[in-house]
Simulated scan of single mutants.
Amino acid sequence: MQNNPVIVDIARSPMGRGKAGGALSEVHPADLLMQVLVGIVERNKLDPGLVDDLIMGCVSQAGEQAVPTGRTAWLAAGYPLHVPCTMVERRCGSSQQAVHFAAQGIAAGAYEIVLAGGIESMSRVPMGSARMGKDPHGVAYEQRFPGTVGQGISAELIAARWGISREAMDAYSARSHQLAEQARVAGHLAREIVAIDTPAGRVSEDETIRASSTAEGLAQLKTSFNNDEIAARFPEIDWSVTAGNSSQITDGASVALVMSEKMAGKLGLRPRARFVAFDVIADDPLLMLTAPIPATQRALAKAGLKVDDIDHYEVNEAFASVPLAWLKDIKADPARLNPRGGAIALGHPLGASGTRLMSSMLYGLEETGGRYGLQTMCEAGGQ
Score class of each variant (00 low, 15 high):
2 Q>A: 13
5 P>S: 06
7 I>W: 11
8 V>A: 08
9 D>T: 02
10 I>L: 12
18 G>T: 09
19 K>H: 11
19 K>F: 08
21 G>T: 04
21 G>K: 03
33 L>M: 09
34 M>P: 02
38 V>G: 03
39 G>D: 12
39 G>W: 11
41 V>K: 07
41 V>M: 03
42 E>T: 12
42 E>I: 08
44 N>V: 10
44 N>E: 05
48 P>M: 09
48 P>C: 03
52 D>F: 09
55 I>Y: 09
67 V>L: 15
69 T>H: 04
71 R>E: 00
71 R>V: 07
86 T>L: 12
87 M>L: 08
88 V>E: 09
95 S>P: 04
97 Q>W: 03
97 Q>L: 14
100 H>Q: 15
104 Q>W: 02
107 A>F: 04
108 A>Y: 11
113 I>E: 11
117 G>E: 11
118 G>V: 15
121 S>T: 10
123 S>F: 12
130 A>S: 11
137 H>W: 15
142 E>A: 14
142 E>F: 11
148 T>F: 15
154 S>Q: 10
157 L>T: 07
158 I>G: 04
167 E>S: 08
170 D>W: 08
178 Q>K: 09
183 A>M: 07
186 A>E: 06
188 H>Y: 08
193 I>E: 10
196 I>E: 09
201 G>A: 07
210 R>M: 10
216 E>W: 09
216 E>M: 01
218 L>F: 10
223 T>K: 03
237 I>D: 05
239 W>S: 05
245 N>E: 09
248 Q>R: 13
250 T>F: 08
251 D>A: 06
253 A>E: 00
253 A>T: 08
260 S>I: 05
262 K>P: 00
263 M>G: 02
264 A>C: 01
265 G>W: 05
270 R>S: 14
275 F>V: 10
277 A>Q: 06
287 L>C: 12
289 L>R: 07
289 L>M: 09
296 T>R: 03
297 Q>I: 05
306 K>P: 00
309 D>L: 06
320 A>Y: 11
321 S>G: 01
322 V>A: 04
325 A>E: 13
330 I>H: 10
336 R>A: 02
337 L>M: 13
343 A>P: 01
343 A>T: 03
344 I>N: 10
347 G>S: 08
355 T>Q: 12
357 L>R: 01
360 S>K: 00
361 M>D: 01
361 M>R: 06
363 Y>T: 01
363 Y>N: 03
367 E>V: 03
368 T>H: 01
372 Y>D: 00
372 Y>G: 02
374 L>Y: 05
376 T>G: 06
378 C>E: 06
383 Q>E: 12
